[in-house]
């Protein structure tokens, strides 16, 4: 039991690093609700992939979800920029529309097939230690989720590492960034695509609630107490990791769902830090 618990905490912490970094960027761009929006928007992608391939449990559905995940981000960008609609409204319009289209497609073409995100795409943290990656020779390499999330964490860390300067400037002063020739537009779109890919891939491994919570709560907790970009990013990852440990212990103690417990603990951490920082501020 200890080993599987460790695997869960480690994979969840890897996720916390990826989403912790991206979450900060989302927060600064005022699109913290993007994770939730993507979780609803992938539905038409799944349905269309099913209708095209006729397969229910296959990579095709995942590809459909990825396409829609990236698609919804671009759609939000488009509505926001081209029509100058404020960000949250653009998110709300896009995801409700896409989800509705998904429901309509299912109702018309796939009434008799259980085809929602929860039963075909979204994974579950508790299954991680069971879903092992073995080589054809039978060598056990540990949970599949671990490797996927490790890859995601490496990609995201290198993105933030490579683009640190650009991000710093383009987040806080896009015009200045443009003037200095930093191509904020390019970085911005790379970031948009990366967020969507990470989010959908993580949904497949650990389920929606954990990703949605990790995309915002640790970042918000870090935002309360940090004044620089690097400490913001670092603390955000750290809070995700502590929430993973705490949430797993809570689930172990109570026998409940692990992902839900981690999301809850992340919220409680936020509350505690908020209260402490309020007290510290009132004394100072």
């Amino acid at each position: 039991m200890l080993i599987s618990g460790l695997w869960i905490i480690v994979t969840s912490s890897l996720l916390a690093i990826s989403t912790g970094l991206l979450g900060c960027l989302l927060m600064l761009r005022r699109s913290a609700m993007l994770g939730d929006a993507i979780s609803h928007s992938v539905l038409p992608g799944i349905v269309m992939a099913y209708l095209l391939t006729g397969q229910k449990s296959s990579i095709a559905l995942f590809v459909g979800a990825i396409i829609l995940g990236v698609g919804v981000s671009l759609m939000i960008e488009f509505i926001q920029k081209r029509f100058s609609v404020q960000n949250d409204a653009a998110i709300g319009l896009s995801f409700t529309f896409l989800f509705a289209v998904g429901v309509i497609l299912i109702s018309i073409f796939a009434q008799d097939i259980d085809l929602d995100q929860d039963c075909v795409i979204y994974g579950e943290l508790a299954y991680i230690p069971l879903d092992l990656w073995t080589t054809p020779t039978g060598l056990n390499l540990g949970p599949r989720a671990f490797w996927i999330l490790l890859a995601l964490a490496i990609i995201n860390i290198s993105f933030v590492g490579l683009a640190y300067k650009e991000l710093q400037v383009s987040i806080f002063d896009p015009l200045f960034a443009q003037a200095t020739g930093l191509h904020p537009q390019v970085w911005h779109y790379v970031q948009v695509v990366l967020v969507s890919l990470t989010v959908v891939a993580a949904f497949e491994v650990v389920g929606a609630i954990l990703v949605i919570a990790f995309l915002v709560t640790p970042a918000a907790t870090a935002y309360l107490i940090s004044h620089r970009l690097w400490s913001f990013l670092g603390l955000s990852c750290l809070w995700g990791i502590t929430a993973s440990i705490g949430g797993y212990l809570l689930a172990w103690w109570s026998g409940g769902t692990i992902a839900g417990a981690i999301a809850l603990i992340a919220g409680i951490q936020f509350l505690i830090v908020l209260i402490i920082s309020k007290i510290a501020k009132s004394k100072a």
Partner: peptide
């Protein structure tokens, strides 16, 4: 506002699922 909404959403929903 957007972060506040998202934090409330994920915490309450996490508690609900739990």
């Amino acid at each position: 506002p957007d972060s506040a909404n998202a934090v409330a959403l994920s915490t309450f929903f996490g508690l609900g699922v739990f």
